[in-house]
Simulated assay, not measured.
Amino acid sequence: MTASSETTTSGVVLTDAAVSKVKNLLEAEGRDDLQLRIAVQPGGCSGLRYQLFFDERSLDGDVVHDFNGVGVVVDRMSVPYLGGATIDFVDTIEKQGFTIDNPNAAGSCACGDSFH
């Protein structure tokens, strides 16, 4: 797993595999005005859950990073929960999808979709 273009402990990091997958998904959407928004919201069995989705909005306080042409947006409320988190994309026989390695998570549930 290699981190792409921007590696900071104050923000989210996308690996090259994640950047490639996001670019492919954006091409399939056929829109060039979308960015990947990563948010933390209340919910899930551990108290907080991640949300990743494409968004064209720009909200007050958003933090935006560029990873080789992929815009990644984190809202101001989610920034403290995601500092130093690494987003990767895995495609193996056992698992396919985006994964989040978050040093701020004290624990997570068995499904891996929520944390505390």
Rank of each mutant, 00 (worst) to 15 (best):
G11I: 01
K21M: 13
Q41I: 14
T9P: 00
Q51Y: 05
S10E: 12
A105H: 05
V13S: 12
V19N: 02
D60I: 06
N24K: 13
A110P: 00
V70Y: 01
G61D: 11
G71F: 05
L26Y: 03
D113T: 09
E6N: 09
V22S: 09
V64N: 09
G84Q: 08
E6S: 06
F98T: 08
A106H: 00
S10Q: 09
P103Q: 05
E56V: 03
D101Y: 07
G44W: 11
C111Y: 07
S114Q: 00
G43S: 12
D75I: 09
D88F: 08
S10V: 03
G30H: 13
V13T: 15
T92P: 03
S20L: 08
V40C: 12
L25K: 10
L25P: 02
R76Q: 12
L52S: 10
L25N: 13
G107K: 00
G83S: 15
K23F: 01
T2C: 00
T15G: 07
V63H: 08
G107D: 12
L59G: 01
G43P: 14
C45N: 12
V79L: 15
S10Y: 05
P103R: 06
D55W: 03
L25D: 15
A110N: 01
A39R: 15
G44M: 10
D66E: 12
Q96D: 03
V63C: 01
D33V: 11
Q41T: 13
D101I: 03
G97P: 11
M77V: 12
S4Y: 00
F89S: 06
R57E: 13
G69L: 03
G47H: 10
C109M: 00
V70N: 02
K21A: 08
S10A: 10
L34N: 11
D66W: 01
V12K: 02
Q41H: 08
C45H: 09
D113A: 05
G11Q: 08
Q35E: 12
H65G: 08
T2G: 03
N102L: 01
L48D: 09
V90C: 03
R76F: 05
S78Q: 10
A18I: 06
S4H: 01
V74A: 04
F54T: 07
V13L: 09
V90Q: 14
N104I: 08
V64E: 12
L26P: 00
N68E: 12
S4T: 08
S114W: 00
